[in-house]
Write a protein that binds this DNA or RNA. Structure first.
Length: 945
RNA sequence: GCUCUCGUAGCUCAAUCGGUAGAGCGCUCGCCUGAUAAGCGAGAGGCUGGAGGAUCAUAUCCUUCCGGGGGCACCA
């Protein structure tokens, strides 16, 4: 008679480690992907499939390190492309980089003694290029470490000469359609960056301005046009402004044509003051004259005062009184200081009245000789000087400061000015209607994005595309030396494009115009001598043409429109719009079919991340601590439509979830080490109801998860997957089925049945994981036994498989319904066991036997159908259904009793002896003469081993 | 200033047409020691941002306020 302390059981065996060791393992996996060209292979196998192209919005190369928002964006893109690839689409990803523009130029100039003047444009451009390309290397390394797949060997870069050539051709097409023009306009100007800015580059921020009220005395020659009662007095219009420095450029005083203006005799005030009736009180209060005696000498409508002339308060010229509907009664005096050179509205109204344009500041914001005594002063430094001068002239009624929101440069954050200069514009007006139609043909996710961009495009003014800088693509226009007309014909632009294609855009500065133009002459006078345009294009124009320079140029991307643009929601103003505008102008359609946006990353309490607050989460630190997959899991776990929180607590929790997923896989792998599906798979008919239930659930999960992926709702996938692994598998099925796996004879059908279910589960799970946590999925894939992998298709990488599909064979609604009821019963049983445990009556649940009695006979019959399996489901040594009350049925007093929902469960101490092998308490331990401490079941198994 | 949107347990997310607020994780306590730096069980956590209102009934509809985010306007 044998008696051993341990008998062999079928324990899980796997080399798949419990700990991820991401810092090492993820890199190993990435290396294998790179070395064996898995990305390329994944595309190759989908070559003939329908395409799903996500076109990359280029991150800006001002830094070598990406921040968490960029990481989120790239991971989202990668989840989409990996999913689409697995799902059967041809889904290449060509990453891009935005490499021109001010911030890079400024960053480079910071280290240059003497600034811009110290370098030639080409020298400066070479430094910018080197700077951008070195940052590219850093960003690329960051992206690759995240496990993002793409054409890393051949990304697109806006500074690439072929890109530049294509950009010039797009410019040419727009010019050919008459959508480009050069015009004098009052544009937003950054004196710090020394360039014009587009609307997209302007942001509003609080700013403390001056607030002054200034008298404009009516010129003697105009007095006859005043109301009779004041013709013999000294009359002055009172203007209000927040920018004293613009007064040297004043050329007019604007009144609203329909406002009533009053002529006020104010105590101690030599002039009769003219202000809008509706603003009189506000003005008198502000000017500290509320207590003074005030007499209204006359009234007049704005339109009755039109074309009067005033003396400029300190320059020797006249300032004309004009009418404009832009004058409001919200602030000021109803008399608006008008300087066409320093405000878009002033500019427009000035054009109507032919006031001319004065803009006596240079590109750095310093007054020119035209500004008279202020020449040489910077505009902001001139404010107090102007105020002082006004005081000396006796025309200043009031001076104070106040805080309001004011336009700032979104790059350097400094206040902007308006400056009238000649600029190149894209005439949005020319294709606005079509652009709006195209917006409505696009799917915007979330749907609110449609209104956001629609309103912007509907209301925006023409796009100022010229910049007075060196680091960018030149505006490919020449000016005839004879007639000074611009040359931008199809021919001349193609000539430029050809040279750029061959030499890059440095040639613009290195070569003479004749080198480009050869025999091309001026279209107006036939002249052959040209000057070149010195302005470059707005960087938004660069990235705005990627649809042409990348999607249409790279055969592997199969042209516009692509399926998806996916960027932060700020790109409605930026890239989505610039891409749309150029695409509509040139190709008459949007470059994308769907636009998906995400919000911004904030800390755990919802605050913006900032260095000063110290709440910045760095992607590389997350990766160092947890690995790329945990970071990716974070991306998948949040609803990115709104603000996206991240922080220590969240990451710790995500790491827990990651571990749960990992351990689920480990259990699957370990218990399949001796399973060859080709040989051992059990037919569906031979599976137990419980086994079929799990397959049914698996099917439901696949269906739901697929829906979530298709809607880009990854957080639902995350919830569901976590739930499935934790609840359905680990806490339920695995726990129950361990007994069968471990104690049966390895080849017994009931064990093989479980392994059959585990096989399907593993195969499905590993592929569901692949888009989000590719390293984990690959690690699992590589740890599968050869027979398993062979059965699954033999792919060398999980990323070369097909995404799981709903399997009609697995559908078993009956089992689904049946087991969801039984899970409720199990919950009640657990409570009874827990009470017995709390009373120290039992430890392990196998020490107990439970007896159930149902109030509802139908329910009892239902459960009775698997009475023989109930004990294994509850992991007890026995389980019975009583037909009469709690039914003691020969057992002693219950250890505990729990009643809920028409079910009473009584837990008893299990009868019999504990089997040394399966640990169950049975009445037949030792019955087999061979094994004194084994139950009959185990004795049989052991004898067959 | 106008406007849109969001605000559900510590965290991430659920709650079909309004019908007694759910899950997972975390936490606490306990069990197991044949998934073991694992696994299992139970429990405690929410006046659904606040206040009004319509309704038999509201997290869900209306008003208003507070807070987060966005858009437009603020141009003198």
């Amino acid at each position: 008679m044998k008696e051993k302390s341990t008998y062999s059981v079928n324990l899980p065996q796997t080399a798949f480690p419990m700990k991820a060791n991401s810092a090492v393992r993820e890199l190993e996996i990435q290396k294998v992907w790179d070395d064996t060209g898995v990305y390329e292979a994944s595309l190759k196998r989908r070559e003939a499939a329908p395409k799903y192209v996500l076109h990359d919005g280029p991150p800006y190369l001002s830094s070598s390190k990406i921040h968490i928002g960029t990481a989120l964006n790239k991971v989202l893109k990668d989840i989409v492309t990996k999913y689409k690839g697995l799902k059967g689409f041809y889904s290449p990803y060509v990453p891009g980089y935005d490499s021109h523009g001010l911030p890079i130029e400024n960053a480079v100039l910071k280290d240059v003694k003497g600034g811009r003047a110290a370098l030639t444009p080409v020298e400066l451009r070479q430094r910018c290029r080197a700077f951008a390309l070195s940052n590219l290397k850093g960003q690329e390394a960051n992206f690759r470490r995240l496990g993002v797949w793409g054409h890393w060997q051949s990304p697109y870069i806006t500074l690439d000469q072929h890109f530049e050539a294509k950009q010039v051709r797009v410019f040419g097409k727009m010019a050919g359609k008459g959508y480009l023009y050069k015009g004098l306009k009052s544009v937003s100007w950054c004196p710090n960056c020394e360039t014009a800015l587009a609307e997209a580059e302007v942001e509003y921020a609080d700013h403390t301005s001056n607030s002054i009220y200034v008298k404009f005395a009516v010129d003697a020659a105009s007095k006859s046009k005043l109301p009779a009662s004041v013709q013999d007095k000294d009359v002055a219009f009172v203007i209000w402004t927040t920018t004293p420095w613009t007064l040297p450029a004043n050329l007019g005083v604007a009144l609203h044509p329909d406002f009533v203006y009053e002529f006020l005799q104010v105590e101690d005030e030599p002039h009769v003051l003219v202000v809008a009736e509706s603003l009189k009180n506000a003005f008198l209060n502000a000017a500290g004259k509320a207590e003074k005696a005030v007499k209204v000498l006359a009234t007049a409508l704005g339109k009755e005062l039109e074309l009067l002339e005033c003396r400029h308060p300190f320059m020797d010229r006249l300032s004309r009184v004009i009418n404009g509907d832009h004058v409001t009664a919200e602030a000021g005096t109803g008399c608006v200081h008008t300087a066409p050179g320093h405000g878009p509205e002033d500019f427009e109204i000035g054009k109507v009245y032919q006031l001319g344009v004065l803009s006596p500041v240079d590109s750095r914001g310093i007054f020119t000789e035209e500004a008279g005594i202020f020449a040489g002063q910077r505009f902001d430094k001139a404010n107090p000087l102007v105020v002082e001068h006004l005081k000396e002239k006796g025309v200043l009624l009031q001076h104070s400061t106040f805080s309001h929101s004011y336009p700032h440069c979104w790059r350097c954050k400094k206040p902007l000015i308006f400056r009238a200069t000649e600029q190149w514009f894209a005439s949005v007006e020319g294709f606005r209607k079509r652009a709006l139609e195209c917006i409505d043909a696009v799917e915007w996710l979330p749907a609110s994005g449609r209104n956001r961009i629609f309103n912007m495009v509907e209301n925006r003014s023409d796009w100022c595309i010229s910049r007075q800088r060196a680091w960018g693509v030149p505006i490919p226009v020449f000016y005839c030396k004879g007639c000074h007309k611009p040359l931008m014909s199809e021919e001349s632009i193609e000539a430029v494009a050809k040279v750029f294609d061959a030499e890059g855009s440095d040639s613009w500065w290195e070569r003479e115009p004749g080198y480009f133009l050869k025999d091309i002459g001026c279209g107006h006078c036939g002249g052959k001598e040209f000057d070149r345009e010195t302005d470059i294009m707005d960087v938004w124009f660069d990235s705005g043409v990627t649809h042409a320079a990348v999607l249409d140029e790279r055969p592997e991307l199969r042209g516009t429109p692509c399926e998806l643009y996916l960027e932060g929601s700020d790109q409605h103003r930026g890239w989505f719009q610039s891409s749309l505008l150029t695409s509509v102008a040139v190709s008459d359609r949007a470059p994308y079919k769907t636009v998906l946006t995400h919000g911004f990353v904030v800390d755990e309490s919802g605050r913006k991340m900032s260095k000063s607050v110290g709440n910045v989460v760095e992607p590389d630190e997350v990766i160092k601590q947890y690995g790329a997959d945990v970071l990716r899991l974070w991306v998948a776990s949040v609803n990115y439509t709104d603000d996206i929180p991240i922080g220590k607590n969240m990451l710790a929790q995500l790491a827990d979830v990651y571990r749960r997923l990992r351990n689920t896989a480990r259990f699957l792998l370990g218990n399949l080490h001796d399973f060859d599906p080709a040989r051992d798979m059990v037919k569906k008919e031979s599976l137990s109801s419980l086994d079929r239930f799990v397959l049914h659930r698996l099917n439901e999960v696949v269906a739901e998860v697929t829906r979530d992926f298709d809607r880009f709702e990854f957080f639902k996938y995350y919830q569901l997957l976590q739930n499935f692994c934790g609840v359905d598998l680990s806490a339920f099925y695995f726990d129950i089925v361990k007994d069968r796996l471990y104690t049966c004879h390895p080849k017994d059908e009931s064990r093989r049945a479980v392994q059959t279910v585990l096989t399907h589960t593993l195969h499905t799970l590993v592929r569901l994981l692949a888009p989000v946590t590719p390293h984990l999925a690959e690690d699992i894939w590589q740890h599968m036994s050869e027979p398993l992998r062979a059965y699954f298709g033999g792919q060398t990488s999980v990323l070369l498989t097909d995404y799981p599909q709903v399997n009609p064979d697995f559908e078993d609604k009956e089992a689904g319904a049946y087991w969801s009821e039984l899970i409720d019963v199990r919950l009640t049983v657990n409570k009874a066991l827990e009470q017995a445990r709390a009373a120290r009556s039992i430890g392990s649940s196998l020490e107990a036997t439970v007896v159930m009695s149902f109030g509802d006979k139908e329910k009892a019959d239902k459960v009775r159908k698997i009475e023989g399996d109930l004990a294994s489901v509850f992991i007890t040594s026995g389980a019975h259904i009583s037909s009469n009350g709690t039914g003691k049925e020969g057992l002693s007093e219950p250890l505990s009793t729990v009643s809920e929902e028409g079910l009473t469960v009584a837990a008893y101490r299990a009868q019999g002896e504990k089997c040394a092998r399966c640990w169950k308490y049975t009445g037949d331990v030792g019955k087999d003469s061979q094994y004194a401490d084994l139950c009959g079941f185990c004795a049989d198994v052991v004898s067959r081993l």
